[in-house]
């Protein structure tokens, strides 16, 4: 696959391993989290596919998408894992966002450790993924793209259920965000820890207000 791409030299085994790790069937429980999207939908701020795409674009480019990609890349490239874990949790602007990254990271680390007989410590989700990418010698560029697309696809799925939208509309949103996932993945590869950061205050606020909603489908 992708033999013409200079950055990708993936063996079939590595490709299959990555797809296994980022498959919705891999038991991290991503489906339970909306990252605050549920608040935005209930408030009427995200009511159609275009608004969903805009919301996800903001979350990817200016919010946790970019920060997660950078933490993942740093962990995979051998930066101090304890420091990254502490930072990854501390960056959460709300208790539910902290739970989201903590619980998915814990489940991911536990499953990878058990299946591949590794010792990945419980860590925030992107840090756990980065440690696994390093331990399994998986190609980081492809891991970053798939991580970001899984992030987008999971939240698009949440949007499809919440707004609601048709499955086809949801998949169109995921497809439209693919170039952004690729762009951010490439930037994260060459970024430094100090490039961490963004600006998405209303997404943070939506997650902080999520536990105030009268009825909720999601844990964040």
């Amino acid at each position: 696959m992708t033999t013409g791409t200079p950055t990708t030299t993936m063996t079939t085994d590595a490709a299959l391993t990555l797809h296994q790790l980022f498959s919705p069937a891999f038991p991290v429980g991503a489906f339970a989290y909306s990252h605050g999207l549920e608040t935005a939908v209930q408030a009427g701020q995200v009511a159609d596919a275009a608004a969903l795409q805009g919301w996800l674009e903001a979350a990817l480019r200016h919010g946790a998408g970019w920060s997660d990609a950078l933490l993942l890349a740093q962990a995979a490239q051998g930066a101090d894992a304890d420091m990254l874990s502490e930072l990854g949790l501390a960056l959460s602007p709300s208790a539910e966002r902290r739970l989201e990254t903590e619980q998915q990271g814990r489940a991911f680390a536990a499953t990878v450790s058990a299946v591949w007989e590794l010792e990945i410590p419980p860590s925030p989700y992107p840090v756990a993924v980065g440690l696994a990418v390093q331990a399994l010698a998986l190609p980081l560029d492809e891991a970053l793209r798939l991580y970001l697309q899984a992030f987008a696809a999971n939240l698009a799925g949440a949007g499809v259920r919440l707004i609601p939208l048709g499955q086809t509309d949801g998949q169109r949103v995921v497809q439209a965000l693919a170039p952004l996932c690729a762009e951010l993945a490439e930037r994260a590869l060459g970024a430094e820890l100090d490039d961490l950061g963004g600006f998405a205050p209303l997404i943070d606020i939506a997650s902080q207000r999520h536990d105030m909603l009268y009825s909720r489908l999601f844990r964040s």
């Binding site: 935005a40 701020q45 805009g54 200016h62 961490l196 963004g198 600006f199 209303l202």
Partner: peptide
């Protein structure tokens, strides 16, 4: 970690931001 660069007005105008 707040990082806002270049067209701040454009970013601030985004309905999700």
């Amino acid at each position: 970690r707040l990082h806002l660069q270049d067209d701040a007005a454009g970013t601030l105008a985004h309905p999700a931001i």
